[in-house]
Design a protein around this nucleic acid. Structure first.
Lengths: 191, 191
DNA sequence: TAGTTTTCTTATCATAGGTCAATTTTTAAC
DNA sequence: GTTAAAAATTGACCTATGATAAGAAAACTA
């Protein structure tokens, strides 16, 4: 929980009341590799802040293939925001790739922080702006880069966790098969 | 300007002061097809709200090919948010696809609305949340759907403007060549 | 409306990446 | 450590989409 508090304090003066509120609605959890915290078809109530370890969110298409939306590591949030926002059931699975420590929040309770402590509005708005920019860049990369170029970018951006993530998960994030990724890795190694 | 005011009023009580502020920083413009409002390499200061017509934002890759990030029609906002946020020069071009009417804002001035009229914080946060959800869905679609399926989805989602948009622009939005799109259209017509 | 330009289509060929199946390597479980 | 399971690699082949070029059809322009 310290992690989240400190992260917030980097950009926002956090009143002791707000801090107490966060503590009151938070729920620290230790997860082990393979744990699934959100399953498709389920009503999504929770959102997770990662303290350590790595989680990923993915969907399964009509052919049973997995497509990774996000890897979340230290200091990232993860949930099925599409489901939360549409108040519909989840289309994503969120699973633990390594033993992890997370803080679980009820998304609605957490949302209340904005009305109770309006200073969070601006903080959260800025987080979302940054998130939008990241997603736009990912879309443009997907449109204009080859699989090998996207892999290079992935290695740069996720250099700290790349080694912990299985290649077939990376492939499903890049939008290629694990066989293709394997070939790309061979080519890369030659240089 | 009425359009924007009405759109805001659907979800927010708009004080007359806030309305006056919006008027004071807005600048209605009539654009003609082909007009370019943002060019790559330029410092981005403006953001646009579309009243009528259609604009698009796109980047040009190292091979000179265009990739469309967004088509903006009535009631949508468009700018290079990546540049605004990073305070860097633009990587996008924003051009007018049809004669259009837009409201131009200085992005920084518009941003002030959040400090002057804090009720906008929550409004804007919700807009951004929705935007994030849309972008996430686009990424998942790009990962899991074939070009033909993405085209079908495009036709659904943009049914109102589809006819005004050149096919090669649609192709650049879907991440395929215009020749591929042409073939997809032929196949579709057969059914 | 004739002429020009832009866009769309069509055909042929090329290629990145997918599929399937077999094998090796790594990781996990006992 | 040994064994079993999971993941990664490799090879042969396939397919969706890209590249290029040329002609047809639309869309502007004068």
């Amino acid at each position: 929980m310290e992690n989240l508090i400190n992260k917030i304090k980097e950009r926002l003066h956090l009143s002791s009341e707000a801090e107490a509120f966060l503590y009151s609605i938070s729920n620290e959890k230790e997860l082990v590799k393979g744990d699934v915290v959100i399953r498709p078809g389920q009503v999504v109530k929770k959102t997770y802040f990662v303290i350590s370890g790595c989680l990923r969110s993915y969907c399964i298409d009509t052919n049973g293939k997995e497509h990774t939306l996000l890897f979340a590591i230290k200091d990232w949030w993860i949930s099925d925001y599409m489901a939360i926002h549409s108040e519909d059931i989840s289309t994503l699975t969120i699973e633990c790739l390594t033993d992890s420590k997370v803080i679980e929040f009820n998304a609605k309770e957490l949302d209340e922080i904005h009305t109770r402590f309006p200073e969070f509005e601006s903080y959260q708005r800025q987080n979302l702006e940054r998130h939008v920019v990241n997603l736009q860049m990912r879309i443009l990369n997907q449109l204009q880069l080859s699989a090998a170029e996207r892999y290079d970018l992935f290695l740069e951006k996720y250099s700290d966790i790349e080694k912990q993530i299985r290649n077939f998960h990376v492939a499903s994030f890049l939008g290629i098969t694990q066989e293709s990724l394997s070939r790309i890795r061979v080519e890369r190694a030659k240089k």
